[in-house]
């Protein structure tokens, strides 16, 4: 089941390599042995691959998920509540019946679920549905991540700081608060007086006040290409392309690391080399937290 995502266009290898077409020991006929349900607010190219398409009203994801959980637990659901979702009781009951009968169910959810009305509450509702289905059969759920190696950034920030994103080090140790310390919030508030941009193009995607602030402060961009952000940056360092002319590691959506093996040579340095040299130069400056201060602090 895919919810609020369009893998046919956004993750074009997902059906063929992972979820639908592969033949396997227990699913020897490949696609014929699987059932695919797509849930979205409009029909996308992914609909062509689906056995069942459930078109829900925009902004009603949380309600649909909650009704599905109620049906799973055999609770009564008001007809008026169902009518608002754009689906019928038959469709919803059929969904649950099929899910319970499945030998192994997978749910994938995209930004159509996680970034629309309800946001993380929607993701939580879907994850809870998947968890509760395990009372009947095996079920798992996974977000459909985007943008290159965003998973790798998450994974490494977690082992080094405990948190995936939205982190500040302004007290000398990591603190986490999405909505306060997320890049976009820090920029919109004008809380930063310099920016180093790596593997991203916020000039193309962030709200205008954030972009305005990036243009105001010394912004340094490491990117193989000219981008919206590099145009407004004070410094653009051209780097080689990871996976094409630079080695490295990319974490797959399921957090499995894959080695990147470059096919070409590049006259440009890698991101890693540039950051290493910046770090070396910074290390020669005096440190803003003097040695001899407290080693640890008990939060709270």
């Amino acid at each position: 089941m895919y919810w609020g995502g369009n893998p046919a266009e956004c993750h074009p290898r997902h059906f063929t390599k992972y979820t639908l077409m592969q033949k396997s020991k227990f699913l020897p006929r490949g696609r014929k042995d699987r059932t695919m349900i797509l849930v979205d607010i409009r029909e996308t190219k992914s609909g062509g691959a689906a056995d069942i398409f459930l078109q829900i009203r925009p902004g009603k994801d949380f309600e649909v998920l909650t009704i599905l959980r109620a049906i799973l637990k055999g609770q009564h659901v008001n007809e008026s509540a169902i009518a608002e979702t754009g689906l019928t009781l038959e469709q919803l009951t059929d969904f649950i019946d099929r899910a319970k009968k499945a030998k192994f169910g997978c749910m994938f959810f995209g930004m159509g679920l996680s970034m629309t009305r309800g946001k993380h509450m929607n993701s939580a509702a879907l994850l809870t549905l998947a968890a509760e289905l395990n009372a009947f059969t095996k079920f798992v759920a996974m977000p459909m991540r985007g943008h290159g190696n965003v998973t790798g950034a998450d994974v490494i920030m977690r082992w080094q700081t405990g948190f995936p994103f939205g982190i500040t080090f302004n007290r000398g140790y990591p603190r986490y608060n999405p909505g306060e310390f997320s890049t976009v919030d820090v920029l919109v508030r004008g809380d930063t007086d310099a920016a180093l941009i790596l593997g991203a193009d916020p000039g193309a995607t962030m709200p205008q006040p954030a972009i305005d602030h990036l243009a105001r402060i010394p912004t340094i961009v490491l990117d193989p290409k000219v981008t919206h952000t590099s145009r407004l940056a004070r410094v653009h360092i051209t780097t080689s392309v990871a996976g094409i002319s630079a080695p490295g590691t990319a974490y797959r959506m399921d957090e499995i690391p894959l080695p990147l093996k470059p096919a070409l040579k590049s006259p440009y340095p890698t991101d890693q080399e540039v950051v290493r040299r910046i770090n070396e130069a910074v290390a020669r400056k005096s440190h803003w937290i003097p040695d001899g201060g407290p080693m640890t602090i008990l939060q709270r």
């Binding site: 140790y173 040695d291 640890t296 939060q299």
Partner: peptide, 8 residues
């Protein structure tokens, strides 16, 4: 929890 503060 206990936080370790960065030094050089």
């Amino acid at each position: 929890t206990t936080a370790f503060i960065r030094t050089q």
